[in-house]
Design a binder for these strands. Sequence first.
DNA 1: AACATATGTAAGTCGGACTAACATTAAGGT
DNA 2: ACCTTAATGTTAGTCCGACTTACATATGTT
Lengths: 253, 253
Amino acid sequence: MTQNSTSAEANTSGRYHHGDLRTALIDASVELVSTAGADGFTLKDASRIAGVSVAAPYRHFSDKSELLHEVTEVAFSKMGSLMRKNAAGQELGTIESITAMGKTYVRFASENQQLFRLMCENHRGGPDVNLEEIFKEHASGQNGKTLIDLLEIKKHDINNYALAKNAPNKGIACFSILLKSVATFLDRNGIDVQHTLKIATPMWAIVHGTAFLLIDHKFQNLTPSIDTDDIVERATRYFLNGLLLEYKETGHI
Amino acid sequence: MTQNSTSAEANTSGRYHHGDLRTALIDASVELVSTAGADGFTLKDASRIAGVSVAAPYRHFSDKSELLHEVTEVAFSKMGSLMRKNAAGQELGTIESITAMGKTYVRFASENQQLFRLMCENHRGGPDVNLEEIFKEHASGQNGKTLIDLLEIKKHDINNYALAKNAPNKGIACFSILLKSVATFLDRNGIDVQHTLKIATPMWAIVHGTAFLLIDHKFQNLTPSIDTDDIVERATRYFLNGLLLEYKETGHI
DNA sequence: AACATATGTAAGTCGGACTAACATTAAGGT
DNA sequence: ACCTTAATGTTAGTCCGACTTACATATGTT
């Protein structure tokens, strides 16, 4: 066959037009960023791999950062499916499931260091996530939907948004998984779900910090050696138990 | 006076030799990195500010990254003195003092975003911090020194090391402040200080994650809006209370 | 077939890191 | 004072990579 076997491959057939250069460039860039990092990444390398001249990418991306943004979206999709797969096998809202989610986050960062860095730095303003509004809607109870229903709807809105032109941030889809999990945890323990964000953000900080300290080698010279799974497990468990204790004693958050 | 008023200023006097170009370049670079970030930083700009040609820096630094490493050291010193000043006004080893330290960490990151990024990325292997060894020495009790004495000695060693040729990392000096604080907390609550590192690293992760999520604008589109002081306070309090609870119930860490 | 549009190339500009050859100054020994 | 030497600066380049302009080729609509 004279056609490329997949549309995203390099232009090896000698044809003047590539066929799907845009996809080929994104694929090549994901690989290049993964190994060399966003700093070491050059359009020249991506062009060479795709088998086109260095000027060709500018027919598909306004500049280098546009291409890197596409790489970011791919990375967030990758992380999102990992987290959804992980969440699917768990009973929602338990300390164990939340811990497992955190470990998944850190493991993704560890196994995709350069992509993870890019995901964090390369932030573009995303859709608003207005928990206040969504929980008010739930509290009113007029639509008969459960909390989880509403979160699913919200998630759906987010996904739609993410498919729109210049989709800014699939990262929110990952965050919504954590939100749902924390909301369920609070609900199970009789705590007002209004406080979801107040609890979810510190938990995010725990795994995010662990991930960055790990990939920036900050644990490298410490003895006894550091186990990041232990950090996530310990921090999550202490944090949630401390929360429950304080709620039991004071009756509020 | 024909001399520069400080040795680190730009070479405005028209003299062929600058006087203290090395220091002038570091000073200029700290400013430039602070505003434009390490990515936006150019040797050209630094040279222009110092009033010398673009080739001059190579008489003092082997390359750009050497100069950036000096900037990193300055940044760590800055953060270290902030944390020491903060710790000086506190009773060591209380939840309040540990919380205050965390807030200082996040505030520094927020007010020195680009420097903080550089400090984290620009890691070079530092001196080993062998807590196992130091706590064994303390447990043997043969030298009659208190735990805090030993940590002070260790800190002194670290500082000496940091003054040596190619001093790799003043960051460890910051970390040692946290270590001492956590060790004191554990000791006060009857917990074996052997576990200091197991407790200190998750606490570091909490503030480190909070700092990065903040400066990477990950809290930007959330409602209700996020207060990072509240995150640090809440996470620290829940974490330490959860730890104490579990220790009380199980008798071990 | 003719045209418009999409997608590619070639050849150049520009900025910034780095280098080689040369110039100036500071410091110290005689 | 004078000469030598090392330290520290300059000039004028190279190299690399992002980006642009003008031109070439393919595609698909009529």
